[in-house]
Structure formats: C-alpha cells, structure tokens
Computed example of a mutant assay.
Amino acid sequence: MYPSNEVIKKSFFVPAANEQAVAAPITGVGLYARFAFAGAVCCAVTHGGLTPVDVVKTRIQLSPEIYNKGMVDGFKQVIRNEGAGALLTGFGPTAAGYFLQGAFKFGGYEFWKKTFIDAIGTEKARENRTAIYLGSSAIAEFFADVALCPLEATRIRLVSQPTFASGLVGGFARIFREEGVIKGFYSGFGPILFKQIPYTMAKFVVYETAAENIYRSIGKPKDQLSNGTITSVNLGSGVIAGTAAAIISQPADTLLSKVNKQKGAEGQSITSRLVKIAGELGVRGLFTGLLPRIVMVATLTAGQFAIYGDLKRVMGATNSVEISK
C-alpha cells in the first residue's frame, strides 16, 4: 500500500542525519545593503556618542581666546557656563548626518573595492592593494559628503550659535529658509571634501595595512581566530588609523568649522572666505584643537571598525573580497 524506503530514496533527496544545511552566501544588492546598514549604524553610534567631545573641540576651534586651556578645562567651561546639556548640542544632526555618511562610505568602499578588483583581477589587485584602498575610499567618501554636508552645516551652526535653533529640524529649516541650499548647506562642501576625502583615504589604507600586519604577527589565518580576537584587531587597527586620519585632516576640519560658524558677507565667494580664514589663522591656528580631535577620531574610528565587523558577522555579510597578503 505504501512505497518502500528504496522508492522514497530514489524519488526524493533525503539528507543524512549528520549533514547540516549550509546557507548560500549573500551576494548582490543584499550584500551591499548589509554593508551600508552596518556602516550607517557604526558611524551614527560613534559620532553621536562622542558629541560632547566634538562640542568642546568645535568651541576650541571657533573661540580659542575663550577655550584656551585644553580639552578637560573646555568641558568644565561649557558645563559651568551653559550646563551639562550643552555638551549634547548638535546630537540630532550629528547622528542623522553620520548615519547617511556611514552608509555611503562603508557600503561604497566595499562596492568600489570589488569593482576595481573585478576590473584588474585579484592577483594584480593584491599587488596594487594600496592604490585600490585609496581609490575606493576616495570615491565612496565623495558621495558620502554630498549626503553629510547639509547636516554637518546644521550641526556646526547649532554648536557655534546655541540660540540659533532648538534642534535639528528647527536649525535645518531656518538655514534653508534664510540662506538657501547652496549657500546655507553647501558653503562648506569644499572644506568638507578637503577634510573628509584625505581623512577617509588615510583611515581605510592605514586600517587595512595595520590589520594585515597584526594578523601576520598572530600567525594564524583569520578564519581560525575567535570573534573576540578579530574584534580586538579591529579596535587596535582603528586606533592607529584614526590617529593618522585626524592629523591629516585637521586643517580642513578647522576651516570647515570657521566657514560654517556664520553667514559670509554679501557677494563674497566661498573660495575667498576660505583663503581669508586660512591666512588669518596661519599654520598654528589651523591645528588648533588637534589633541581633542585625535582623542575623538581615534576612539570613534576604533569603535566604527569594531562595530562594523561585528554587525557584518551577525548579518552574515562576511564574504567581502580580501586582497591583503
């Protein structure tokens, strides 16, 4: 009445009891969406969490005659004069802006890296991996900055002028209403490119190089290491990468803060404003606030790569192309 076991085995695939189903690797749009989401989260969390440091750093850059006794005293001054809540000024645009920026930056970096590798082949890409890292990060950061710039302009205005608006929506709307898109939101686009592109290039190439050397010193393949060890490598490499990136991008960061502090004079071009500001500051002035920025950037970069790596693992997006030796 019923088919025999032999007939069932011939008609259907019956896995052995000890066989485990292996999920197909995630590819295509799904893979890059996961990269973008992991990048968005890691940047929003780290930049948002370090808003107090960024507030003090920006105050030191914009008002060095007042905040002239270092980072710790800067915290004390802000709290004493404005209350502890002032340290969270600009949190909204910071978290929102860097959520968008992180998606474009990390997702774009993975996309362009894969594109270049496919174009020239894995072996040639491995030989020219530094150029691949630099080119991929530069292109990704350009598009990331298009998304970031309006929110960064809003953040700086809120920090530099605490009475300008009560938060992200109010500040964004007022700048749009009074100054328009280009002058209001993108007056700092040149400085932000000048700051962020070298910053991101240094960040990724130093991270990749540091991680490669750390893994080589461990002496085991990456797939044989524990998750904790991999996270530790990401943290250590991130600290090194963040320190280098902060130093390289500091002059542009200072110019960006200055140019967004207030509206320019009627008819004055962005370029002339930047040249004038740079001339007034000099080399020493362009590096004002470097120490707090190193602390901030090294910390957030380490956190970003650790969170990014962990989120990719949780979401199963671990099959990005590796060209390290």
Rank of each mutant, 00 (worst) to 15 (best):
F142K: 04
L151R: 06
A241C: 10
N227D: 13
F204D: 09
A153D: 07
G190T: 15
K195F: 10
K203I: 03
A202E: 04
A241L: 11
G188A: 14
V159E: 05
S160L: 07
K222D: 13
T229K: 06
G228F: 05
A144M: 05
P198L: 10
N234I: 08
V159W: 00
E178T: 12
A173T: 12
A252P: 02
A165Y: 02
F204E: 13
T209C: 07
Y207L: 14
V181T: 13
R174D: 09
A244I: 13
A173W: 00
L151E: 04
Y215F: 12
A138L: 13
D145A: 10
F164P: 04
E208F: 05
I156H: 01
A202M: 14
T243W: 01
Q250P: 03
R174Y: 00
I139Y: 01
K203L: 15
K222A: 15
R177C: 08
I192T: 12
P251Q: 10
A153E: 02
T254K: 06
F194P: 00
P221I: 14
I230N: 09
E178C: 05
I218C: 09
G184P: 03
I139V: 15
G236N: 06
G184N: 06
L168M: 13
E208M: 11
F185M: 10
V233L: 11
V233M: 09
Q250D: 07
I247P: 02
A165W: 00
L148Q: 12
Q224Y: 01
R177F: 03
V181D: 06
F185G: 06
A147D: 10
A252T: 08
V239H: 00
G190I: 15
F164T: 07
S249Q: 09
T163H: 06
L158I: 12
T254E: 02
F194N: 11
E141Q: 13
